[in-house]
Structure formats: C-alpha cells, structure tokens
C-alpha cells in the first residue's frame, strides 16, 4: 500500500492545505473548498475503478447530498453544517443502499450504463418536478451555521474551508482503513478474478454492495459541502457531465491511491477555472484529449508521476547519505 511511507510528504501537504486561507486570495479559497468537496465524490468513483468498474452515474449521490442541503433550508429551515453533513451522508448511503440492490449484480458496461441511467432518471425528476425541486432554478442553501454558531460573514468562507478540510481528512482516514481491510482487498481483487473470490466462500455481490453504499455516503458528503460552498443547488449536480468529471478526475489523479484523487480534484478545479475563461467551448474536448493521453500513456495518473519523481528524488538522497 502506498500510504505506508510518506509521513513527510503527507505532513507537508496537510500543512499547505491548512495554510490556504492565509496565503491564497478569496476566490482561490473557494476553488480549493469546492475541490475538497468534489474530492469525496471522486474518491467514491475511484473505489470502483480499483475494481475495474466504471460508473457514469455517481453524480446522483452527489446531488442527493446537495439537495439535502437545499430541501433542509427550504422545508425545515436547517442550515447547520454539523447536522447536514451526517444527514447528507445518510441520504446518500440510503439511496445507494436501494439502488445498490440492483447495481451489485452488474459489472463493467452494465454497471457503467445502469448507473448512468439511474442518475439521468434523478436528473429528469429534479428538472421536471419543478414545484418541488425548483426545476432549472434550483434551490438555495441556507447561510451555514456551525454547531449553532453563525460566524461573521467575512469568515464564512474560512469556516467552510476548514470544515471541508477536516471532513476530507476523516474521509481519507476512513477510506484508507477500508482499503487496507479484507473487504478493501477483495474489492481490488474482484477486478481481476471474481471466480476465486466465490471459491473462497466470499460473495462478490456483497463486496460490491458494501462499496456501493460507502460510495453513496462519500458522494453525499461531497454534495453537502458543495451545496453550502456554491450556495445554489441545480439539477446539473446529477447530470452525466458531472459524473463524467468525477471519472475524469479519478483517472487524472490516479485511482490507485487515496491521495491521488485529492491532487486530481485540486488540479482539476484550477484547470477548469482557467479553461472556462479562455476557451469555454473546447472544455470537454480538452478533458477528452487529456483523458486519452492518460489512458494511452500514463494509466496511473498524476499520482504515478509523483511517485516516479519521489522515487528518483529518494534514490538521490540515499546516494548522498
């Protein structure tokens, strides 16, 4: 496992992330917060990529989390982050537990396309049931409070940022534990050989199901944070393009590790901000070309580029010592 070494890099990375509000301008803070939120959904997608399964529909759980924030504000006046985070995760997991009953039976193209179908059904519902969901206008998130405390306006972004960072830290820890557990290894192993798993007395369907529920919770968490960060929740949260972005980022960052998707998410949000400014109409094409390049030349994503550099750097240090 990759995370066994690297305490130094991990500390440096964490320190950089903690320092963000002090060094970066406000708009960048916003970008990194959003990147942290989406990272959780990306991680959900990356879990399945480890098992060689693609999902073109995980935006649906991201949307479930975000709409939990929207409906919370609209119907119940809820706007506390500490309350809505677990709620969003719970809803994400609950929807995944339901959809997963079907999805755990399918692999590969069926898994990919059925996820797409489910997410597009949700998208259609969010769009068409406008008297409930606000249709294309969407819903507004409440101004967030934190365990009942309403921070002054100028510090709101910082509060959201550190909350996202804290949740991201917890998520990294939890997913790391998950991947190091027997079930996590079975998840990786099933991409290679399902027959051996069944002939070990374990159920591949169970592995898929548990992972699916977990992935729903993760994407739900991301949706809650994104909903609060952007402040506005629209059906596009569940659109296939959003799902495609998650897959793209998982591939970009590298799904072999837990940290890869984090690097990918942050890189992606910055690229997107600039790209939408300078060439708004070629954005998807850019994604497509980068994705092609990664598939054909760098299947491990950014993470392996980093690992390659680290290995070369590390060797030089050893030689020097």
């Amino acid at each position: 496992m990759e995370t066994r070494r690297l305490p130094v890099e991990a500390l440096v990375g964490a320190a950089l992330l903690v320092a963000v509000p002090f060094v970066l301008p406000a708009w960048m803070k916003f970008i990194v917060t959003l990147a942290l939120a989406k990272f959780m959904a990306v991680l959900a997608v990356a879990l399945f990529l480890r098992a060689n399964q693609v999902t073109f529909g995980h935006a649906m759980f991201y949307a479930v989390g975000a709409y939990a924030v929207g409906f919370g504000a609209k119907w119940f006046g809820l706007r506390d982050v500490a309350l809505l985070l677990p709620l969003g995760a719970l809803f994400g997991a609950a929807v995944a537990a339901l959809v997963g009953l079907v999805m755990a039976r399918y692999r590969e193209v069926f898994f990919a396309m059925l996820n797409l179908a489910f997410s597009m059904m949700l998208y259609g519902a969010l769009l068409k049931l406008y008297w409930v969901t606000g249709g294309t206008d969407g819903l507004s998130a409440g101004v967030p409070t934190f365990l009942g405390y309403a921070p002054p306006r100028e510090y709101l972004r910082d509060f959201l940022y550190y909350t996202s960072l804290g949740v991201a830290g917890l998520v990294i820890y939890a997913v790391y534990r998950f991947l190091a557990s027997p079930l996590g290894y079975y998840l990786k192993a099933m991409g290679e050989n399902e027959i051996r798993i069944e002939y070990s007395g374990e159920s591949v369907r169970h592995v898929m199901y548990v992972t699916y529920v977990l992935s729903g919770a993760l994407a739900g968490l991301g949706g809650v944070l994104a909903g609060f960060t952007v402040g506005h929740i629209v059906p596009e949260y569940s659109f296939w393009i959003q799902s495609g972005d998650f897959v793209f980022v998982a591939l970009l960052g590298g799904y072999g590790s837990v940290v890869g998707p984090l690097m990918g998410s942050i890189a992606f949000e910055f690229i997107r901000t600039y790209a939408s400014k300078y060439f708004p109409n070629e954005w998807q094409m850019t994604l497509g070309i980068i994705m092609l390049a990664i598939i054909l030349f760098r299947p491990g994503g950014l993470w392996t580029i980093y690992e390659g550099l680290a290995a070369r750097f590390g060797r030089r240090e050893v030689e020097r010592a």
Binding site: P182, Y185, E202, H206
Partner: peptide, 13 residues
C-alpha cells in the same frame, strides 16, 4: 475468509 472475517471493512488485512 477462513477466519470468517472476509467481509470486515475496518480492521486491517
């Protein structure tokens, strides 16, 4: 799997 812990998802392998 033999130990009946194949589905554990928190304790390490």
């Amino acid at each position: 799997a033999e130990a009946g812990r194949g589905t554990g998802f928190w304790q390490p392998l």
